[in-house]
């Protein structure tokens, strides 16, 4: 049976719409990626001549290298501390009833609504008032505050999915509360904890606004180093860096997917 022209038109306009939306999502990335190969020292699209020299500059510019390692240090510490603290708070809030429980939960989740620059500024003022140095601990502390809600949320979801009868069964079999936590609760929460950690790490590594306030020349992370660079130079180095960044992230995620099963870590697969 022949489809009517109206149906065909609808069908094709639908496809065009989807393509347009996908293009809109990808466009900024595409523009930046193409710009990275421009030979000239300006950010222009499309490029007139082609070169790889900005990639070389991205690698050789020492602030980026230092920013990368600084950022990695901050990310690993911040997301790991947030994992332990956030999971502990999440379990306590989920399991127990106590005075001001909802207030505690609200405070811990508040970084979701408080702007990052407010948190950055607040920590900076506190640090200068108390005379604390502007070293790594300050940056890490700020990042812990920022990513804590995400670890807690992820732990909450896993706790909701955890059948409490498993813990009751373990108790009936003679396991003390501590043993239940180590042998039943934590192993079963692990996918959620890992996904929370991964999410926290990605956020922390990319965080810019609050970090700008609390970092110094010695502790600046990659996004801050990139911001400082763009204030001085207008060449395509940042575009090249973006391409590297996208490629590395894609590679890491594919590896995580291949070896760990990403859908399991990200809780995409409910079973």
């Amino acid at each position: 049976m022949k489809r009517s022209p109206a149906v065909m038109a609808l069908r094709w306009s639908g496809r065009v719409l989807v393509a347009a939306i996908l293009l809109f999502v990808l466009l900024p990335g595409i523009v930046v990626a193409v710009t990275a190969f421009n030979d000239r020292a300006i950010l222009a699209f499309p490029p007139q001549a082609w070169s790889l020299r900005w990639f070389w500059r991205a690698f050789s510019y020492s602030d980026f290298g230092r920013g990368f390692w600084n950022g990695l240090t901050v990310t690993l510490w911040a997301s790991s501390i947030a994992l332990v603290v956030g999971a502990a708070f999440a379990i306590a809030i989920h399991r127990y009833t106590f005075v001001l429980k909802s207030v505690l939960e609200g405070i811990l989740l508040s970084p979701l609504i408080i702007p990052h620059y407010t948190i950055g500024l607040g920590v900076l003022i506190l640090a200068s008032q108390t005379g604390a140095g502007r070293g790594f601990p300050l940056v890490i502390l700020t990042h812990v505050l920022l990513v804590l809600p995400f670890v807690m949320r992820s732990t909450f979801i896993s706790l909701e999915n955890l059948d409490s009868r498993l813990e009751l069964a373990a108790a009936s079999l003679g396991a003390t509360p501590g043993r239940i936590l180590l042998t039943v609760t934590i192993p079963l929460l692990l996918p959620g904890l890992l996904s929370g950690w991964l999410f926290a790490a990605i956020l922390s590594f990319n965080e810019f606004t609050a970090t700008l306030f609390v970092s110094s020349q010695a502790t600046q992370t990659l996004p801050v180093a990139m911001y400082n660079y763009v204030r001085e130079f207008a060449d395509p180095t940042l575009a090249a860096l973006s391409v590297i960044y996208i490629a590395v992230t894609a590679l890491l995620l594919s590896l995580a997917n291949a070896f760990l099963g990403l859908e399991k870590i990200l809780n995409v697969d409910a079973h």
């Binding site: 009868r165 009751l168 373990a170 108790a171 009936s172 079999l173 003679g174 396991a175």
Partner: peptide, 20 residues
């Protein structure tokens, strides 16, 4: 007495086997 000291065996409706 807390549950873990009562020496009781229990079978739940959904069996509650440790999946891991």
């Amino acid at each position: 007495t807390p549950a873990h000291q009562r020496e009781i065996g229990i079978v739940f409706q959904n069996y509650a086997l440790f999946p891991h």
